[in-house]
Simulated scan of single mutants.
Amino acid sequence: MPERPLLNFQADGSALYAIQSLWTQAREGLNITTVLFNNRSYACLRDELANVGAQNVGRKCSISVGLTSTS
């Protein structure tokens, strides 16, 4: 394990997929600072829709790939 501090940049959507990484950092006492970026989107899901050629997706689908409220 490196002795120098580490800086981790993470997007909010991907952090929701791997939130346990923050628990591991704390449990192991790792010298890591994590900065979460708030882009309010699950970019990996949005990108997958584009990869399969999905166009003009409906409201429910748009909500599921975003981090905005349903109202």
Score class of each variant (00 low, 15 high):
residue 18 A to R: 05
residue 3 E to Q: 03
residue 26 A to M: 00
residue 71 S to W: 03
residue 20 Q to T: 14
residue 6 L to H: 11
residue 23 W to L: 10
residue 37 F to I: 14
residue 34 T to Q: 00
residue 7 L to C: 01
residue 16 L to I: 10
residue 37 F to W: 12
residue 49 L to D: 02
residue 29 G to P: 01
residue 15 A to Q: 09
residue 12 D to I: 12
residue 10 Q to K: 08
residue 19 I to W: 06
residue 55 Q to G: 01
residue 45 L to Q: 10
residue 39 N to H: 12
residue 42 Y to N: 07
residue 4 R to P: 00
residue 47 D to C: 09
residue 17 Y to G: 13
residue 7 L to H: 01
residue 4 R to F: 07
residue 69 S to N: 13
residue 54 A to C: 09
residue 13 G to P: 02
residue 16 L to M: 14
residue 54 A to R: 01
residue 27 R to P: 00
residue 56 N to D: 03
residue 7 L to Q: 01
residue 65 V to P: 00
residue 59 R to V: 09
residue 11 A to C: 14
residue 69 S to W: 09
residue 11 A to S: 12
residue 52 V to G: 03
residue 15 A to Y: 10
residue 14 S to K: 12
residue 6 L to K: 10
residue 42 Y to V: 05
residue 69 S to L: 11
residue 36 L to D: 00
residue 22 L to D: 03
residue 23 W to V: 15
residue 16 L to T: 14
residue 51 N to E: 14
residue 19 I to S: 13
residue 51 N to L: 15
residue 30 L to V: 02
residue 38 N to V: 14
residue 71 S to R: 10
residue 10 Q to C: 10
residue 71 S to K: 08
residue 30 L to S: 03
residue 50 A to L: 04
residue 36 L to S: 05
residue 51 N to T: 15
residue 26 A to E: 00
residue 63 I to T: 04
residue 69 S to V: 12
residue 68 T to A: 06
residue 38 N to Y: 06
residue 71 S to P: 06
residue 51 N to R: 15
residue 13 G to M: 02
residue 44 C to H: 11
residue 43 A to P: 02
residue 18 A to M: 06
residue 28 E to R: 13
residue 17 Y to L: 13
residue 2 P to Y: 05
residue 20 Q to M: 13
residue 17 Y to V: 10
residue 19 I to K: 09
residue 7 L to T: 04
residue 15 A to L: 14
residue 49 L to M: 10
residue 28 E to K: 11
residue 33 T to E: 08
residue 34 T to E: 00
residue 65 V to M: 06
residue 48 E to V: 14
residue 28 E to P: 02
residue 14 S to I: 12
residue 68 T to V: 10
residue 18 A to K: 06
residue 2 P to K: 10
residue 67 L to I: 13
residue 15 A to T: 12
residue 56 N to V: 06
residue 67 L to Q: 15
residue 64 S to G: 00
residue 10 Q to E: 04
residue 6 L to Q: 12
residue 68 T to W: 09
residue 23 W to Q: 11
residue 33 T to I: 07
residue 8 N to D: 06
residue 66 G to F: 02
residue 4 R to K: 11
residue 58 G to T: 03
residue 32 I to W: 02
residue 5 P to A: 06
residue 13 G to N: 04
residue 5 P to R: 09
residue 39 N to P: 05
residue 21 S to R: 07
residue 18 A to N: 13
residue 28 E to F: 06
residue 12 D to N: 15
residue 12 D to Y: 08
residue 47 D to F: 07
